[in-house]
Simulated scan of single mutants.
Amino acid sequence: MSDLVKKDGGGLLGVLLGTGGLVVPKPFEREIYLFTTHVAGTTHVDNIFEIEKNINIGDRLSFFREDNKHDDLAIRVETEKEEKLGYIPREDNIVFARLMDAGKELYAKVKTKEIVEAWVRIEIDIYLKD
């Protein structure tokens, strides 16, 4: 029986478990576009101009629910390097916060970015991983 399952993660078992070096998409897994908005609060982020230099169109951004005294539904937006960019705007976050609270995985992709005086405007598309 031990000949059937190798612990090195190779072969078909390695593919199924994701340890064989081959990435196989899960059945029916997809990303669902939900909404376009911008990242709010970039003017309050220290070193935002340094962070902006490393952000590219199409980069994936992570969302985190945050205990925030200014907004009970706050969703923090971070780069893949865990650098805070700002928040989903308050007027846009109610549905997304509820989805995240229900255990849904949401993320964004950078759509556009520009520097407007002392402000970095980052437009994002929000997706649901289903």
Rank of each mutant, 00 (worst) to 15 (best):
M1Q: 09
S2A: 03
S2L: 02
S2Y: 13
S2M: 04
V5N: 10
V5G: 00
K6R: 14
K6W: 10
K7A: 09
D8I: 04
G9H: 10
G9V: 08
G9F: 10
G10H: 12
G11E: 09
L12I: 12
L12Q: 04
L13R: 13
G14R: 11
L16W: 10
L17K: 15
T19I: 02
T19F: 05
G20Y: 10
G21E: 10
G21Y: 14
G21L: 00
G21D: 12
L22H: 12
V23Q: 14
K26I: 02
P27M: 10
E29P: 04
Y33C: 01
T37Y: 10
V39C: 03
V39L: 02
A40S: 07
G41L: 00
G41Y: 03
T42V: 11
T42P: 04
T42Q: 10
T43N: 11
T43R: 15
T43A: 05
D46P: 13
N47P: 00
N47Q: 13
N47H: 14
I48E: 02
I48V: 14
E50W: 08
I51G: 09
E52H: 13
E52T: 05
K53Q: 15
N56R: 14
I57V: 15
I57D: 12
R60A: 03
R60K: 14
S62Y: 11
F63P: 07
F63T: 12
F63R: 05
F64K: 08
F64S: 01
R65V: 05
E66C: 04
D67G: 03
K69C: 00
H70I: 06
D71E: 12
D71P: 04
I75N: 13
R76H: 10
R76F: 03
V77N: 08
K81H: 11
E82D: 12
E83M: 08
E83P: 08
L85P: 05
L85R: 06
G86E: 07
G86V: 11
G86W: 11
Y87N: 03
I88E: 11
I88S: 10
P89S: 06
D92R: 13
N93P: 04
N93K: 05
V95G: 05
F96V: 06
F96M: 05
R98H: 10
L99C: 05
L99H: 05
M100Q: 13
G103D: 07
E105W: 07
E105M: 07
E105I: 14
Y107S: 02
A108L: 07
K109D: 02
V110F: 11
V110G: 07
V110C: 04
V110N: 01
V110R: 09
K111Y: 14
K111Q: 13
K111G: 07
T112C: 00
T112S: 14
E114T: 13
E114C: 08
E114N: 07
E114Q: 14
E114K: 15
I115N: 08
I115H: 07
V116T: 11
E117G: 09
A118G: 10
V120K: 12
V120N: 12
I122N: 09
I122H: 11
I126M: 04
I126E: 12
Y127H: 01
L128Q: 08
K129G: 04
K129A: 01
K129L: 02
K129I: 06
D130H: 03
D130Q: 07
